[in-house]
């Protein structure tokens, strides 16, 4: 039995898509209250790793243990386990046939079986927290990308997750809207939410993350405090990646 001291623990995780091996043995853990940012080049398996954590992808082998419950156990109640993990997607994935308020209420009602009044109260609190209390009755298509993403965050928070997963939450946003979403995420981090964030926003990673994990080619190349991994990277691959990200106009092709 694993002691319950990590929020999530990943051991020797492998994932194949057919012949393609996307994750080649990932080991790491996130402790309660920690914010861990995952960085790395496109195609390195960051999304796949995140999706394995809440089993949107079935790992080929290895273990994912969430609050002491092994999700990779074939007989686990996966729906119950997923309730403890919130996920925020690059493309928001709000439910377009529901208002912002309904988006935040639906899973509370259907999954947690909360009453209408309670669900609505919690939904309004969370929408207020992400700064869009005045857009409760708007449909997703009437909202800007930044507003949609904040509704999506509120939707996940309303389920009282123990862990929040973010997969490039600002990559689909117009540059001037990125800040609104990052501010919300920073606030969440300060409140002590456990977060695993895939991002290309190096400033966010440096300022907010307790740890930064650099992935390349399906393995973790470097894992350490933000200041170290971003400030003084040890590995050549990390250095060249950071050079390309931080100074994109001076890339040697």
């Amino acid at each position: 039995m694993t002691p319950v001291n990590h929020a999530v623990e990943i051991r020797d995780l492998h994932k194949h898509f057919g012949k393609l091996e996307v994750l080649k043995g990932i080991d790491f853990a996130v402790d309660p209250g920690q914010v861990v940012c995952v960085i790395g080049p496109s195609g390195s398996g960051k999304s796949t790793l995140l999706r394995c954590v809440n089993l949107l992808e079935q790992p080929t082998s290895g273990r994912v243990v969430l609050e002491g419950v092994e999700l990779t156990d074939r007989d686990v109640d996966i729906d119950a386990a997923r309730r403890r993990v919130g996920m925020v997607f690059q493309q928001f994935n709000l439910f377009p046939h529901m208002t912002a308020l309904q988006n935040v209420m639906v899973a509370q009602r259907r999954v947690l079986k909360r009453g209408r009044a309670e669900a609505e109260k919690i939904a309004r609190e969370n929408l207020e927290k992400v700064g869009i209390a005045d857009k409760c009755d708007a449909y997703p298509l009437q909202l800007s990308g930044g507003q949609q993403q904040r509704v999506a965050i509120a939707r996940a928070l309303a389920m009282n997750p123990a862990l929040m997963l973010f997969d490039e939450p600002t990559s689909a946003l117009d540059p001037e809207l990125v800040g609104d979403v990052l501010t919300v995420m920073r606030k969440l981090a300060e409140e002590g939410m456990t977060m695993l964030v895939v991002t290309h926003e190096m400033a966010f990673a440096r300022d907010v993350a307790d740890r930064v994990v650099f992935m390349d080619g399906g393995v973790i190349v470097e894992d350490g405090p933000a200041a170290q991994v971003i400030g003084e990277p040890q590995h050549e691959r990390t250095k060249s990646f950071l050079r390309r990200v931080l100074d994109p106009t001076h890339t040697d092709v």
Binding site: A80, M87, A107, R110, V111
Partner: peptide, 20 residues
């Protein structure tokens, strides 16, 4: 992404189908 968002909120496959 609609099914994935619904599943990530803890809905079962059947529940996600019928409500989302």
């Amino acid at each position: 992404g609609q099914m994935e968002a619904a599943r990530s909120l803890g809905m079962s496959h059947a529940r996600a189908m019928t409500t989302i």
